[in-house]
C-alpha cells in the first residue's frame, strides 16, 4: 500500500528520532497574501501544516486563535481563499502535507461532497473538524477516506476508555490528542509528565498510528513533550502575528524565526 504524505512525514521524523512539528495558522491572517507567505517561509522547518478556516462563533478556541480568525474574517476571508492559499502553496517545489481545520458549519454550507472534492483538487491532505465528534463524524470520515484525505479524530483527557478504543479503531493514520481541559492556547495546567502518561496509554491502543499532542504548547513546553509522535503549535504562532502587527514588524519574518526556534528545541 502506498503511504500517504502524512504517513511519510511521520516516518521521516521517526527516522530522525524526533517528533513531527505541526504548526497551525489561520488562512488570510493577517491577509491572504501574507498568510501564504508565512506558510512558504515556515515550510522548511515544519513537517505538517495545519491551516485554519476561521469561524465567527468558535466554541473551542482560546483568545489568540480567536483574534487571528476575527482578523481574517474582518479582512474579508472567504472559504474559497483557504483553498486558493493551499493551491498556491502546493506550487512550491518541496511542499509539506496540509491539514485544513475548522468548524463544521463552513463545511456544511459548502456541501460535504463538494468540500472534500475541492480539498482533493487543491491538494489538502487532511481535515480536522472541531465540532464534529465521533460517532457523528463516521460518515464524513469515510467520505474523506475514499478520497485519500486523512480525517483526524480528536481525543481528550475526558474521553472514556471505551470511547478511546472505538475512536482509535475508526481513525485514520493520524490522531490528535488534546493535552488538557482547555480551549486552544490555554496555559499548560497539567505537567508534561502527566500528559505523556495519558498519551502513552492511548498510544498503546494502536501503536502503528501517529498521535500528535496539541493545546498549550509553546517554546517553553515543547522540548518536554518531544517523545510524542508529533507536536502542534498554534496559539503561540497566532500570538506572534498579533504581536508583530502591534509592533509594526513583519509577521512573516517573526513567525519564521519562531518556528525555527521551535524546531531547534525538538531535534
Amino acid at each position: 500500500m502506498l503511504l500517504s504524505p502524512i504517513n511519510i512525514a511521520f516516518k521521516n521524523c521517526k527516522n530522525e528520532k524526533r517528533p513531527a512539528l505541526l504548526t497551525y495558522t489561520v488562512a488570510s491572517d493577517p491577509s491572504k497574501n501574507k498568510s501564504l507567505k508565512i506558510l512558504k517561509s515556515i515550510s522548511e522547518y515544519v513537517d505538517i501544516l495545519e491551516v485554519g478556516f476561521g469561524h465567527s462563533t468558535p466554541i473551542a478556541d482560546g483568545g489568540q486563535i480567536q483574534t487571528s480568525s476575527y482578523r481574517a474574517i474582518k479582512n474579508g476571508f472567504k472559504m474559497k481563499d483557504a483553498f486558493q492559499i493551499v493551491k498556491n502553496y502546493k506550487k512550491l517545489k518541496n511542499t509539506k502535507p496540509i491539514i485544513l481545520m475548522g468548524y463544521y458549519n463552513m463545511i456544511y454550507q459548502y456541501g460535504e461532497d463538494k468540500f472534500i472534492n475541492k480539498c482533493k483538487k487543491v491538494g489538502v491532505n487532511g481535515l480536522i473538524v472541531v465540532d464534529l465528534p465521533w460517532p457523528e463524524n463516521k460518515k464524513f470520515s469515510k467520505k474523506c477516506k475514499k478520497k485519500s484525505i486523512t480525517f483526524v479524530q480528536l481525543l481528550s483527557p475526558t474521553t472514556s476508555k471505551d470511547r478511546l478504543k472505538k475512536i482509535v479503531k475508526d481513525s485514520h493514520e493520524m490522531i490528535y490528542y488534546i493535552s488538557m481541559l482547555s480551549t486552544t492556547g490555554g496555559k499548560l495546567k497539567v505537567s508534561p509528565k502527566k500528559i505523556l502518561k495519558n498519551y502513552n496509554k492511548i498510544k498503546k491502543i494502536d501503536p502503528k498510528k501517529n498521535y500528535v499532542i496539541g493545546f498549550g504548547i509553546t517554546d517553553k513546553t515543547i522540548s518536554k513533550l518531544k517523545t510524542a509522535d508529533g507536536l502542534v503549535v498554534g496559539s503561540a504562532i497566532c500570538k506572534e502575528i498579533t504581536k508583530s502587527l502591534n509592533k509594526r514588524q513583519n509577521p512573516v519574518t517573526n513567525v519564521s524565526n519562531m518556528v525555527k526556534r521551535l524546531k531547534n528545541k525538538i531535534i
Binding site: 466554541i59 473551542a60 463544521y104 472541531v130 465540532d131 464534529l132 465528534p133 465521533w134 457523528e136 480528536l154 481525543l155 481528550s156 483527557p157 475526558t158 474521553t159 472514556s160 470511547r163 488534546i178 481541559l181
Partner: peptide
C-alpha cells in the same frame, strides 16, 4: 455538534 472534550 460539540468538541470531543465536552462529550463526556
Amino acid at each position: 455538534f460539540i468538541p470531543e472534550t465536552l462529550k463526556k
